[in-house]
Design a protein around this nucleic acid. Structure first.
Lengths: 209, 209, 209, 209
DNA sequence: AATGAATGAGAATTCATTCAT
DNA sequence: CATGAATGAATTCTCATTCAT
């Protein structure tokens, strides 16, 4: 996707990973705009000129970083999705994975949320496309649960977006949560909230008899 | 809070509002970093030199904008909070207000979420302090409902943060929602989600007898 | 000399003294270029607008300060010159006065030596003219001593310039002298140097007989 | 001493000389403050960006110029100092060298005297340190003459400072000398003044018998 | 393929001066 | 006469990008 001057694709992939790691190191503390290409090159341990053999624009780095982070997230959530069959189990474990990622990739997710706006159009489209597919997967999971009678949701698409958004709760609101509550406590609480909001209540059901 | 060279406080207040409006107009499309002071001054219809009579640094503008936006949000949510006594009514209307604001102040809230990181320390502290109080008010509302037996929540603080975060759902995920769903529909759905997650279910109670 | 908008000459004189004092306070630490008109106005306790009623340009202040400082110096040296008749006494006391001024007006003389270059032409001419007259007075004193047989100098004009320059030794080289030697010690040493360089040695004379 | 972004030290040295020459060309007429970096870059025939690869601050240029000028002066005076053994010869030739430099490096020395005050602390310290050593060398020369019975001085340190200061007589007072007297005439006169002030008079000695 | 020196457009900020009140 | 708000040209410095080696 990113145009390079170098032919060998293996070398390109290796270097792009190197660039991701170096860039992320700088972005973590300074954000995208405040980070200079010089700094990034130094953090990557690549010379300035060589860096430009693997990218064309500073924004290419921004895209590279986006891609790498989203890959990590989606890969792990996809694994959770395919691991369980029962909708309730599936939901519980997917939520758990999403919320744990909120803690583990705090800086990375924050970066995505604050810097996606700086992506130029062609990249933005691709990133949003992938994120869209991610949310659709969650939505599909909910719909399955509804169809099987396990879940109760009038608008799975909106709910899926709330869940995805809540996956950014630690990056975006950790300053107000982390001083008071631990990871396990928070993850459990978040899971409970969405379970309560989704699960069909069996008690009334039995009661009806 | 922002140091100015101008002595007349009335004039200062008037101009700062003018600066807020002009700056926001530019920030909306370019974000904070990409907006140049020259552009901002032009959008404010203030000369560059005069602008610097009312601020000391570009970051002062960032703070001014934060303050103005947060004022608007908090004022409206506070009104909702004091309008109703019954916890269920109160919750419903506060959520409604928060989620409607998500639509109405889409750009402003997005700005807050993406640019707060650029605030320098002294300003960041003040902004987070106010936001913290805002979330505490929501938390207190939940606790009252729990005490009165209307709500069921094991960790009102985390839940309050989820609610606050969801107030940014349109700014942050509108691209994935607005093409498919309208304001009323979304607001109702969001309210329902949190009601389900909070309200004590009376049916089981009567059933128990 | 400096053009003002104000008519009353008494008021003008009073204010210009005020301006000198305020300006000097700022110049002492920052020099002429680094001092802003705003700062100077504040130090003078005059409003910015009012300051500009008594001057036309920042350089007018520079000239005002020059004039005031040179007035002080020349007045005191002139007093010494007219106090004594005998060339040797006269020389001794004039030198004493010049070198004591080097200590007492350290900052002011330094200012003159470092900032005269910033004066615009019309003012520069006037300042150099006065300085020239001052040196001529010293030169005349030396010539009188030579004519009377007390002094021995082949080029009184150059010597007078050396003396005038040495009057700036503390401002210009105090950093290398003041940590080691006190005022009296230095003044006495300087007087001795120029006495030795000037006085006709009587011993050989009597010896010749 | 000046931090650069360029790695090749040979190139750095070459360019710094180039910067010195260009900067001095501008400083000569405008002084340090009034000279803009853009002007300096142009005079150096270096692009603005490239100039900043060799310096970090405008003040770095000030230091570079100081260093270069002082190097020239000290080198030449040191040569004179080591050339002669007899204190009287040594004094005469060192004075001659110093006073000739006063003519030849008129603008450079004037620059040093008027702009050293603008050096930031770390550089000021280094410059004064070197100047201090220079004066100490003169002082040591005087002391040797005193010990050998050739000179008569009660405070060689103060005298050394007067000599050093007189080395700036043309830069600082040339406007009052050059219109009337030529280089040779002035240098001879200055030498004579300090010889008379220092040399032990042999006539009285023999006379005493 | 890799290096790092060179470029100049553009950024934030300051400041002497004017002018309406 | 006095005040202080307004102006915009000019300043220092940064940085993405190119290019010769």
């Amino acid at each position: 996707m990113v145009k390079t001057k170098i032919k060998d694709p293996v070398r390109v992939q290796k270097k792009q990973k190197q660039i991701f790691r170096g860039a992320m190191k700088v972005f973590r503390t300074k954000g995208f705009h405040a980070a200079s290409i010089r700094e990034i090159a130094k953090a990557c341990r690549i010379s300035l000129g060589s860096l430009y053999d693997y990218i064309e624009t500073k924004e290419d780095i921004l895209f590279l970083v986006h891609k790498e982070i989203l890959d990590q997230i989606y890969r792990r959530v996809d694994e959770s999705l395919t691991k369980y069959q029962d909708p309730r189990d599936q939901l519980t474990h997917v939520l758990a994975e999403i919320f744990r990622l909120s803690f583990q990739l705090k800086d990375e997710i924050l970066f995505i949320y604050t810097e996606t706006k700086s992506l130029e159009k062609k990249y933005l489209y691709e990133v949003l496309q992938r994120e869209s597919e991610f949310v659709e997967a969650i939505e599909a999971m909910i719909r399955r649960g509804v169809n099987e009678g396990s879940f109760d949701s009038s608008n799975p698409a909106v709910l899926a977006n709330v869940i995805a958004l809540t996956g950014a709760i630690i990056p975006l609101r950790g300053w107000n949560i982390l001083p008071h509550y631990g990871e396990k406590e928070v993850v459990d609480e978040l899971i409970t909230i969405f379970q309560k909001g989704l699960f069909v209540h069996k008690v009334p059901t039995t009661c009806d008899t």
